[in-house]
Simulated assay, not measured.
Amino acid sequence: MNITDVLIRIDERLAEMKVDGRGMSDRSLSLEATGSTDTIRNWRRQATGAKPTAGANIATIAKVARALNVSADWLLTGEGERSLPQSQIISDIIQALPELTPVELETVRAAVLGLRDRHPPEEQ
């Protein structure tokens, strides 16, 4: 695993998110993905040789990939499907639902129904 290549893909994704109005800093990405504010900073230090053991491992990279809404395979290698598989997206949504307030749940419901109504049913 080449941490420099992983960081290039992280930077690419962060730039896209910024353009989309969903900007995120290294610090906020680290916090969302791992609970620590220093993960990405430590990887950058590892890449420059300033910190040889910074904890960049497959499990942590997978958490960062999920926070970036990209597949771990793509983040690690630059190959394969870039987006998260649909099954992973659905699983993430289902796992988050119990943590939402009743008002937030109603907002999610309204959004899902509104999106569904935008797509006519497929003819069989």
Rank of each mutant, 00 (worst) to 15 (best):
I61W: 06
T77Y: 08
G35T: 05
Q46S: 12
V112D: 08
E12W: 00
R66L: 13
E106L: 12
N57P: 02
I61M: 13
P52L: 14
I10Q: 05
A59G: 09
T34W: 06
D26Y: 11
A15F: 01
A111F: 11
L100M: 15
S28K: 12
W43I: 03
T39P: 01
L76H: 07
L14P: 03
L76K: 14
A110W: 01
L113V: 05
T39C: 03
A67G: 03
L100F: 13
D26S: 10
P98V: 03
R22K: 14
A111M: 11
E12C: 01
I10E: 05
R9Q: 09
H119N: 07
V6Q: 07
W43E: 05
R116S: 12
L100K: 13
M1Y: 04
E16Q: 15
W43G: 03
A50M: 09
S28F: 00
R27W: 02
V70P: 08
I3C: 08
I58E: 13
V64H: 03
D38F: 02
I58N: 09
M17N: 12
N2Y: 03
E106I: 05
H119G: 01
T48V: 08
S71K: 05
T34N: 05
L105S: 10
E122T: 08
K63T: 00
S25N: 06
T107D: 12
L14C: 10
I40N: 02
I10L: 11
E32T: 02
L7M: 06
L75M: 08
N2R: 14
I94T: 09
T53D: 14
D38I: 01
P98N: 06
A62Q: 10
S71N: 06
D11A: 13
N57L: 02
T107C: 07
K63V: 00
S28H: 04
T37H: 02
L105H: 14
I89P: 02
